[in-house]
Design a protein around this nucleic acid. Structure first.
Lengths: 85, 85
DNA sequence: GAGAATTTGTACGTATGTATG
DNA sequence: ACATACATACGTACAAATTCT
């Protein structure tokens, strides 16, 4: 189970972790699109707010970049954070 | 009127501008609390989402800092942005 | 100390606008 | 015309920490 609602960790952080782990694992490569807000909502049964918060966190951490009206994409390796999570 | 719904500028940016202008004018000084989300909702007739977005913007710009469960406060002068707005 | 009020954090739902494919 | 995708904005609810009475 990727999202655990009994885990006190905020759901948006859990969702961010799922995506972050996929990036770290190389499953999602630089310039690949990450799941859209809508698909996160559908996949995890979460609210749009929560999906947006997850993406915002990943963006702040430097893992992804968002192009308005186009989507969010895995950042190029130069922009990846060293570790911090 | 401070908030103009016919102005295409996003409302959260208009609200942020109101607070930013009060800081610039010295009406709100470093370490002073800025209006709470609730009071912004009441004062401007906006949703809490919008108020939070305004505060988030001011925080990103460096004008204020937020202490969880306490409020948001005008940042110390050293942290004020040069201009950028 | 007890209880109420305040304030931010999180989360859900919904709708409209705008841009792109 | 239609589907996709993000941005903005409305509403609601509860939790946790702090502050006030």
């Amino acid at each position: 189970m990727e999202i655990d609602r009994f885990d006190p960790t905020p759901i948006y952080q859990q969702v961010a972790r799922v995506v972050r782990d996929r990036i770290k694992a190389g499953e999602l490569k630089p310039r690949d699109p990450i799941p859209s807000e809508s698909s996160m909502v559908a996949d995890h049964g979460i609210a749009r707010d929560t999906a947006r918060a997850a993406v915002a966190l990943l963006r702040e951490e430097g893992w992804v970049m968002t192009l308005p009206q186009r989507g969010s994409f895995v950042a190029d390796r130069e922009n990846w954070p060293a570790d911090e999570t």
